[in-house]
Design a protein around this nucleic acid. Sequence first.
DNA 1: TCTTCTGAATTTTTT
DNA 2: ATTCAGAAGA
Length: 641
Amino acid sequence: MTHTKKRIIDYEHEMNAAQYEAVSSGPGPILVIAGAGSGKTRTIVYRVAWLVDHGVDPSSILLVTFTRKASQEMLGRAIRLLDDRIALVSGGTFHSVGASILRRYSRILDFDASFTILDQSDSHDAIDIARKELSPPIEDLKSFPKPRTISEIISRAAGTGDSIPDVIDQRCPHLEDYGPDIERVRLYYEHYKKSHHLMDYDDLLSRSMDLLETSENVRRQVCARWSHILVDEYQDTNRLQARMVRLLADGHDNVMAVGDDSQSIYSFRGADFKNIMRFPELFPGTRIIKLEENYRSVQPILEVANSIIERAGVGFQKRLFTNKKHGIKPLLARPFSEKEQSLLVLKIVQEFRRTGVPLNDIAVLFRAGFHSFDLEAELTKTRSPYVKYGGFKFVESAHIKDVLAHLRVMANKNDRISWARILKTIAHIGDKTAKTLASLFAEADRDSDLSVLVPEHKKYTDAVKELVNTLSSVAQMDGPLPQKIDELNRFLTPYLQSMYDNYPKRLRELEQLAQMSAPYNSLTEFLNDVAIEPPDHEIDEDMDSRERLTLSTIHSAKGLEWGTVIIIWAAEGRIPSPMSLGNPDDLEEERRLLYVAVTRAKERLIIVVPETIYDRRLGVVPASPSRFLEEIPMDRFATRW
DNA sequence: TCTTCTGAATTTTTT
DNA sequence: ATTCAGAAGA
């Protein structure tokens, strides 16, 4: 066998001392505290290479990340660095690792191996059903919390291990009276999922770990399969995920966890940065290595970053330093209004472009998706190209969900939620009819002809029959998966045309979906993967090659960097978000969020705080800079360049 | 009377 | 994009 790409790596000289120490550690638990821009990804990639170079079988290495993107990027870099053997490394998200364990051992739990994975809105739908079908019924459904709220509470309880009343007490005390009924909804929801062979995202983690905990046999097999585990972004784990890491490493403790407590920004989804502080308790004998040299930002930017984070209450002490001593101070700009802010951003961007800064190297960051609405309007008006991250997801857009729902009922006839969604696309069928028919279909025998169940002499009779017939004929079609999906798309085209005026674009996306299914052998397999790992929006759009400005929420910008970063709406009332004011821990997270935003910048940082803010109720009111900025000595900023 | 359809209002962050 | 309230329709 020849390894054409193989090269000898001089580990000691290709990185700094701390990085080398982490990369070349022997067996046992290691915690790497990697400050922003300190070469975290590089360290992980070299660690994988080092292990393989020192005789560890690549297929026994597991690299756990939070996103598919992160996992692909790291494996891609490792493959380029070493050679094709790296391709054998297992990489995945916590959820996909859980799903793969469940799929393999589902027989042991009494669960059908072909379970369907509920994405977030599916799970909302299921909870809505539970709300409405509970008996005895909930007294005042109108004032009862919405599915979304209940789902958040249930999911948080699952992720943190707290009870429902505890979660309500901490997060939303005003809902205290509903506690017992929410608990009933949860029980119904659990039962519902079980009887319909459904798993939600939390189940993928908790069910798989229950399995490892209860079955010694399974645990031994799984832990023998992966003898070395690397976990990225450990600060964003919740208690469930920390438990997962502990269980997966049972018996060998060969875990390298990498993270930065100062960049923990996902507590709303149950993450607890204290997990990273507790790692040494979970793994006795942990070696702690700190990476503090920053390779990204110039000194004046780091000074602002350090002064934001040094006022944080708890955390591993660290202070970033850099060799890039020269550089300009961050600019603090105060335009009058939101409109002026947008115009200022436009002006800066145009100015930089003229001086040769590529558009790709500039990003505008903000706290929440809607903070960029006005800017987006201006950009559209002036025909400036941009991409926005942190908005709606490809898979969550309606037309994709429609096709997926069709595919799901083909794979699993008793998927009531998908039936209801499909039926509602037919004229004269609303909520009520859709639900009735969905139940009817879901409970029908496996092989019976559904079209005989359709009520006669209704306006929708013919349309429903056509739907049912199409579904069963596509399901029985021979041939590869993409061909089936294309057939389905053809059937749905008239509906899409009537529904969306931009249907050509949506149709193209559906073709892409069909393409994506090509590597899969079974529909079930494809659907499972799509639910865990939403495909990226633009895989090979022609837009991609063009230069565009990046607009992103701070959350979606984590791990990325740009030469120039413009932070808009760095004002009280935006960051910290008003939602966080009630809880000191949440407020601290807002501080970290601003820290993450600031540390994305390499050379130039511009912080924009409009003088006024528009409030729907109060009209135009004065705005002041975020409290996290007010704490910083003003001489760290420039007021003009 | 029960359902569907239409239009208006609202939204923190997401695997 | 989703959700809610009220009008129109069967």
